[in-house]
């Protein structure tokens, strides 16, 4: 068991965080905690990607001192993916937070189960 973690610490941590985030997003009843869960889940994927792109002993892919050889640099593509992913998750978070504000204004609760019940009761 321990051998899985050795050398793959970041990946293992990312998977655990992903599971934590996914469970929170799926099972928690509080909307804010769901949003937190979603962010943990997305961030864990970024950790996973960033750890894949990092190569020990190499520097950021910015041209310095005329060193053009790719051997000197870490892989920049995962960083690009992470950036894109961050933009996406920020916009989704904004949408969810706006929705939560609206839900709270109408129902005075953040509990999704109660909200669904109240909506069904037909105060719509």
């Amino acid at each position: 068991m321990a051998s899985i973690f050795r050398g793959h610490l970041y990946e293992a941590a990312a998977m655990i965080l992903f599971a934590v985030g996914l469970t929170t997003l799926l099972l928690h009843r509080n909307m804010i905690k769901k949003i937190i869960g979603m962010n943990i889940m997305d961030t864990s994927v970024y950790l996973f990607l960033a750890s894949m792109g990092y190569i020990r002993g190499r520097s950021a892919p910015i041209l310095e001192d005329g060193a053009i050889s790719a051997e000197n640099y870490v892989n920049p593509i995962p960083a690009g993916l992470v950036l894109t992913g961050i933009v996406v998750s920020v916009s989704v978070t904004a949408l969810l937070l706006a929705l939560t504000v609206r839900l709270y204004k109408r129902y005075h609760t953040l509990d999704i189960d109660q909200i669904v019940l109240l909506a069904r009761k037909g105060d719509g």
Partner: peptide
């Protein structure tokens, strides 16, 4: 602007974000 739409949208987004999280992973 309707209560049923709000709660429907909340459930839609939660399930869909689970789906897109799995896709991303």
């Amino acid at each position: 602007q309707d209560g049923l739409c709000l709660s429907g949208c909340a459930r839609y987004l939660v399930m869909n974000l689970v789906g897109s999280g799995l896709c991303l992973m």
